[in-house]
Design a protein around this nucleic acid. Structure first.
Lengths: 221, 221
DNA sequence: TAGATTGTTAATCGATTAACAATC
DNA sequence: TAGATTGTTAATCGATTAACAATC
């Protein structure tokens, strides 16, 4: 069933599509837990409140996971999407910035379930150095470069103030780190072969604020 | 200068535009700090790596903040965008779920600078009840309903497991909370007059993972 | 006034939706 | 086979970019 083996060579997939994949995965996980083995794009569209057309288009970017007249096999589809997202591989990550947010992310066990392993944590504050998150102790940023060179670090998570974030990003790039999960409130300038995924919490809160207020304004009419 | 006073009555602004406003605000803040008083869409486009055309289109959704032949006044533009985002008003928020992430958000002082005030925190775990984040002590969720009714809560932040998040959202909606900042890994079903802004961290990490892996695949060619 | 740069309309591009032939 | 539902092409919609007249 299906033929979407090789992801290589195909044309580039838009980020809009990629952004939807984790959500599909979530719904497929629910279906698995409900013991449902097959699902049509129509049924899935009802659950997810998106069009069946979009669902089929999205999946067909990767070569067709369904069967005419039958629909999609839930387990198979789940596994294929997992593979597309790279969740079949393991990824090691470090966290730079041992403040509350860094510690929260370091302590979040669910990442491990998806193959993301927490290798180390760094901070510039001597008071934080030596403290522990799970079984990882906080090291001083001076040790960062050395650590990255000696260990297989795939992803660096930045949970520190904006100025330090820019500096640390440069160091990480120079050590060969290929992906940065950036929580700092700043845009990082890195070579184009380095992946940056931004989580700007205050941007998100401002968007919420806009929608809350514009809604209230509309109500006054 | 400008004429974008009334946001009322005008046609709806797309979320794509709204999502870009906080980023403009960030760059304008930088410009202010550099002591720059005016900027053209061209200069700003160079800094932000977006087209000047998009910048002008975005701003003109709200009625024109610039002056032909001059450009935009940095301070004025900053203030107008702040107003559009509702940052001139104060918003009170509570956090439900006093785990690491909830505590991190409660302890984040920068929100206050933008007018978001941390009013209360709730958890179901008796061990957490009574502990403090800044000067806010954690209450038991049993007190949630009462607290919301007695206080002016604009935004509820959900940092708890998915099942509880769905339940708590229902309670909050029934108490009249109009906005939810949802960090739980689940889609909430709320009436359409309630604003939900999702921050799905694992979705973001999966997107990073995809880009990291597809990049590596491309490199192998 | 001449030069600069906006505001705005028109053109292009990409993403979403609709339709239907292919096929299980 | 008949019915269902995909895969895929074509149509539509919306968002981005280009162009230029308006005007400071």
């Amino acid at each position: 069933m299906g033929k979407g083996e090789s992801l290589v060579e195909e044309k580039e997939i838009s980020q809009a599509v990629i952004s939807r994949l984790p959500r599909y995965l979530r719904y497929l996980d629910d279906l698995k837990n409900e013991g449902i083995e097959r699902i049509s794009s129509k049924e899935l569209s009802n659950r997810m409140h998106v069009t069946a057309s979009q669902i089929r288009q999205d999946f067909n970017n990767f070569g067709g996971f369904g069967q005419q007249g039958y629909g999609y096999n839930v387990n198979y589809l789940y596994n294929e999407i997992s593979k597309i997202l790279g969740l079949n591989k393991t990824h090691n990550f470090i966290i730079v910035g041992a403040g509350n947010l860094g510690r929260a992310l370091g302590g979040y066990l669910n990442f491990e379930r998806r193959g993301f392993y927490f290798l180390g944590m760094f901070d510039i504050n001597p008071e934080r150095v030596g403290t522990k998150i799970r079984d990882v102790s906080v090291m001083h940023v001076d040790e960062l470069q050395d650590f990255v060179k000696k260990n297989n670090v795939d992803i660096a998570v930045l949970t520190l103030p904006k100025n330090s974030a820019v500096e640390v990003a440069d160091v990480l790039v120079s050590c060969g780190v290929k992906a940065i999960w950036n929580f700092a409130h700043v845009d990082l300038n890195v070579p184009e072969d380095v992946i940056v995924e931004n989580v700007h919490l205050s941007d998100s809160l401002m968007k919420l604020s806009y929608n809350l207020n514009c809604h209230e304004i509309l109500k006054e009419d």
